[in-house]
Design a protein around this nucleic acid. Structure first.
Length: 468
RNA sequence: GGCGACGUGGCGAAGUGGGAACGCUGCGGUCUGCAAAACCGCCAUGAGUCGGUUCGAUUCCGACCGUCGCCUCCA
């Protein structure tokens, strides 16, 4: 039986198994994904969850679900203070600047924006309120100007990451904490920090984990469908979010905890390790198509090594897809008649496989395999003796584009911009030379065309000029 | 030390208790003035290692080796 008839499943870190995705009472699939801390330009690793969850949303939309996608940006944080001090600017200025650059960089991915992108700065009242409720419930306590979460008061602590409190390595002495595992909800203002907010517990700022509990609740309510983020956040960040949100609300925070694996560059790519490639640099070098496909050709829960060889491989894969679209262009200029049975059948089965794969824990690598079934069916139909008729060619094109669009790559199959007039003129001159069997001149003209950045391919329908 | 993920062809990457997808590369062929693209065909008797369960395991179980993540900020 096809899973398409059952609906999508996603693996949940919490239950350690596939869970059916069921929309909430308002009909929406509500999804909260932890975004970056903006103390510098984001790296390619940060882009993985952005791509994965943006495309997941696209897919769910295509599947008929309404999705509300929330992804926060952390704009108050120790590292921001440090970076601001180093650059000699105010920390809120620095955060605002890198927030801007984060949006600009991720916009270049052309995957749309999350529906809501909350910041800590804009949620101070909600955060303070949240902490107050935790204190009322006995789950938190003020101490030395800070406020801490009382981890041992929350019975489910450790359920997400599979840790028991007694096996956690305890390093911090913490004279302010009752228990070493307790974590800060509110941090008292320290000298040198150029921003702080008033609170019932004195001036200060929120701890890292509380912001997500407060922002998720503000945007999506106490309970929602999907909570996502990198697997490195499962502990302690998400564990602490659960302790906070479920401690206050008494209901499961999220039905499904979806975590993407890490991007590797000789170990996890992380700013603190210093082994990073900036997203903007990767974008400059490879372009958004290649980068998006790079993230999607591997399952989101697998580690993904970043490297030239893999990116080059990805680029060639995309060329293959583009060539099929080009074949469609040619066929449309000289269509056959009637229905090409094999093409029609393959389109149906590939489409089913494609959606089945994505229903099965968002299995994008298998979805790509289905795409290549379509590619080959197109090529065979176009090269074969009996070409499909115009109507089928158009239907094939729109189906091909629709599938590519799910994974954000429809640009591969939409007709290219026409080559500049100059190039077309050269191509025409080359045709004349070929007709006159002046191949030396024809090859020279091809070199000139290449110098302008175009390839010319001779086909039964005449020369096809494409950007190289 | 604890918790967890993973080890598949030259590379990337899937599914599966009984024929090892898909892509890239490579090789042979077709087409072509040439080239490119495409098409046809070939390329892991074996799936980290060693045991066990089974009629049969790459797929289940165990041990070991190795890689990686988390246990501290981290997508």
């Amino acid at each position: 039986m096809s899973t398409t008839e059952q609906g999508p499943y996603l693996y949940s870190t919490l239950s350690r198994q596939l869970e059916p995705l069921t929309p909430g009472p308002d009909g929406f699939v509500r999804m909260y994904v932890c975004g970056p801390t903006v103390y510098g330009p984001i790296h390619v690793g940060n882009a993985r969850p952005f791509v994965v969850f943006s495309v997941l949303k696209r897919y769910l939309n295509r599947r008929g679900y309404a999705v509300r996608f929330v992804s926060n940006v952390t704009d108050i944080n120790d590292k921001i203070y440090v970076a601001a001090a180093r650059e000699g600017v105010r920390s809120d200025e620095l955060a605002a600047r890198y927030l801007n650059e984060y949006v600009r960089d991720t916009d270049r991915l052309e995957l749309g924006r999350p529906d809501i992108e909350p910041t800590v700065t804009d949620h101070m009242p909600e955060i303070i309120e949240f902490i107050a409720r935790l204190i009322e419930k006995g789950l938190a306590y003020p101490s030395h100007g800070d406020v801490y979460y009382r981890v041992e008061q929350f019975p489910g602590y450790g359920k997400l990451s599979g840790r028991r409190t007694d096996e956690l390595r305890v390093t911090e002495p913490g004279e302010a904490k009752e228990h070493p595992l307790d974590f800060a909800l509110w941090k008292g203002h320290k000298p040198g920090e150029d921003t702080f907010w008033e609170s019932p517990w004195g001036n200060g700022r929120p701890g890292w984990h509380i912001e997500c509990s407060a922002m998720a609740q503000a945007a999506l309510g106490p309970s929602f469908e999907i909570h996502g983020g990198g697997i490195d956040l499962a502990f302690p960040h998400h564990e602490n979010e659960i302790a906070q949100s479920e401690g206050v609300n008494g209901v499961p925070m999220a039905s499904i905890w979806a975590h993407n694996e890490m991007l590797e560059l000789g170990g996890k790519m992380s700013k603190s390790e210093g082994n990073i490639v900036l997203l903007r640099d990767a974008l400059d070098r490879w372009g958004r198509d290649v980068l998006v496909a790079f993230f999607l050709r591997t399952h989101y829960r697998s580690k993904l090594p970043y490297g030239d060889a893999t990116l080059e491989d990805t680029a060639r894969q995309l060329d293959t897809i583009r060539n099929a679209a080009l074949a469609l262009d040619r066929a449309e200029s000289a269509p056959g008649e009637g229905i090409h049975r094999e093409l029609a059948d393959t389109l149906v089965s590939a489409r089913n496989d494609f959606f089945d794969a994505l229903d099965d824990d968002f299995h994008t690598p298998r979805a790509f395999a289905s795409l290549f079934e379509v590619v080959h069916a197109i090529n065979r139909a176009v090269e074969g003796e009996y070409r499909p008729g115009r109507a089928q060619l158009q239907a094939t094109r729109s189906e091909f584009v629709a599938l590519l669009d799910v994974v954000g790559l429809s640009g591969l199959a939409t007709p290219q911009e026409r080559a500049p007039r100059e190039v077309i003129a050269l191509a025409k001159a080359r045709e004349d030379a070929r007709a006159a069997r002046d191949f030396a001149r024809a090859d020279g003209l091809r070199d000139e065309i290449a110098a302008l950045g175009f390839d010319v391919r001779d086909t039964p329908e005449g020369p096809q000029v494409t950007p190289r």
